[in-house]
Simulated scan of single mutants.
Amino acid sequence: MPPNRRGRHNKRPLTPPEGFQLPERNQPYRTPHRSAVFALHLMAEAMGARPGSKDTKEAIHKVIGVTGRTQTDILHSGEVRSLYNQPDLGPDPRGRPRAIPHQDTSAIGDFLDDENLPLERRSQPWRDLAEDAGVELPKTTHFKPLGKRIVEPQTIQTSCKGDESIINATCEEERLLTRAQARWRVIWCIVALCLRPRSWNWWNIVFCDEFHFGIGPQITKHIKRRRGKKHRYAPHLVHRKEVTSKDTKAKAREDDHLDLLSVFVVIGYNYRRAIFYKVSNSVGKMTGDAYTQQILPVLLPELQEKGLVLAQDADSAHKSNIVANWAKKHKMPLITLPGLSPDLSIIESMANPVKKKFHSRKCKTQEESEAWFLEVWNQEMDQDTIRYMYN
């Protein structure tokens, strides 16, 4: 009698393999469960059911035990494999251990935040600065020459910049005022606020300045500080000295006879103008003749038409008798700001972006320099920005 062979078509209860067992609580779902979720939703779509629907999720939950919310998370992730089964993506993105940890850069940042810290100590090399902050610098392995040496200053600088936004910046300079100059500043501000107490009272006042573009040496101090205008113009971070870099550049131009591009710029609430001019001296210093012959005659009809008043700084040419007589003859109102008071002029706070962008490109001829300045002027000195400064 032949043996009783059972055919494969006979039904047999299916026992899930060991790798398909549900994970313990708070453990991630393994690759078989994630792939099953995608496969079953695709099968439901092929059979006419709506994938991702409540009924579909409940049916899949009964089959493999994965809840509906977890199915949604798996589908939205778009990853069939679990994290530890992902293909090799190359070296560890975390990189090698840091030579300067976060607690050390934080100690340097707290050290520099002390307002009583003098500028001389802020201008120290990075290694000396770190040691003054109480940081014990580690020794790192080097191959040329082979051996261990104290960490490089550039490593300290990079770590401080990334963690604490500390940079090696040019120290802002401010001319020291005499007692008489300081007293006149206070009087001028009191009178001006009495005459124009509100911001809209200044809408008919236009501010002017002269820009000189040339190449010359700069005697400046580089300090370590945090990035941003808040720290750039902080009183304890401004270098006050008798001779500023502006004076040094003027002396260099006088000695070397550098070619200059001189521009007289004027801005107002609804006004903006740039005028190129030339002077007889080699340092670009404004003279009374140039002011009354090349600048004021161009501005007079436009300012009278709009009812504007020109506010000028206390340059010697602006306060000369030639300018005073010319303004009186042509009935042109002028306001003269106190000396050494750039903070009282709106244009002084907006000049840096224009100068910085102009110097980003090298111009060989006078015509090329003028065309490039006008392009920079229209981009950086837009009228909306000027109105914002007035308000």
Rank of each mutant, 00 (worst) to 15 (best):
M1G: 10
M1R: 10
P2F: 13
N4L: 12
N4S: 08
R5E: 12
R5Y: 11
R6L: 14
R8E: 13
N10I: 14
K11V: 11
R12E: 12
L14P: 04
G19W: 13
Q21N: 09
E24G: 15
R25G: 04
Q27T: 13
Y29L: 05
T31G: 06
T31I: 03
H33E: 09
R34S: 02
S35V: 10
F38L: 10
F38S: 07
A39M: 08
A49Q: 14
P51D: 02
S53Y: 05
K57M: 13
K62T: 11
G68N: 04
I74Q: 03
L75A: 05
S77V: 04
G78N: 03
E79K: 09
R81N: 06
Y84M: 11
P91L: 15
R94M: 14
R98L: 12
P101A: 04
S106G: 04
I108L: 12
I108G: 06
D110A: 15
D113Q: 09
L117S: 02
L119K: 08
R121L: 13
Q124N: 09
P125L: 09
E131W: 05
E131K: 15
P138W: 03
H142C: 07
P145W: 06
G147Q: 05
G147W: 04
K148H: 08
K148E: 14
G162W: 15
C171M: 05
E173I: 01
E173F: 01
E173R: 01
E174V: 03
E174L: 09
R179I: 05
W184S: 15
W188T: 08
I190Q: 15
L193T: 13
S199D: 11
W202D: 07
N204Y: 11
F207E: 07
H212Y: 06
P217K: 07
H222M: 07
H222I: 06
I223F: 04
H231W: 15
H236A: 03
L237R: 13
L237G: 06
V238F: 01
R240I: 04
K241P: 00
V243P: 06
T244L: 09
S245L: 11
K246I: 12
T248R: 12
K249W: 13
A250D: 09
A250R: 15
K251G: 08
A252L: 01
H257V: 11
L261K: 01
V263M: 06
I267Y: 03
N270I: 07
Y271N: 02
R272S: 06
I275W: 00
I275C: 00
F276D: 04
S282M: 07
K285W: 14
K285V: 14
Y291V: 00
T292Q: 00
L296T: 00
E302V: 01
L303C: 10
V309E: 08
Q312F: 04
A314S: 12
D315G: 14
A317T: 01
I322H: 00
W326S: 00
M332L: 15
I335G: 01
L337Y: 04
G339E: 07
S341Q: 02
S341K: 00
D343V: 05
L344V: 09
S345G: 08
E348L: 03
E348D: 12
S349M: 10
M350P: 00
K355C: 15
K355D: 02
K356P: 02
H359I: 09
T365W: 09
E368F: 02
S369L: 07
W372Y: 15
F373W: 12
F373T: 04
V376K: 02
W377Q: 03
N378W: 06
D382C: 08
R387K: 14
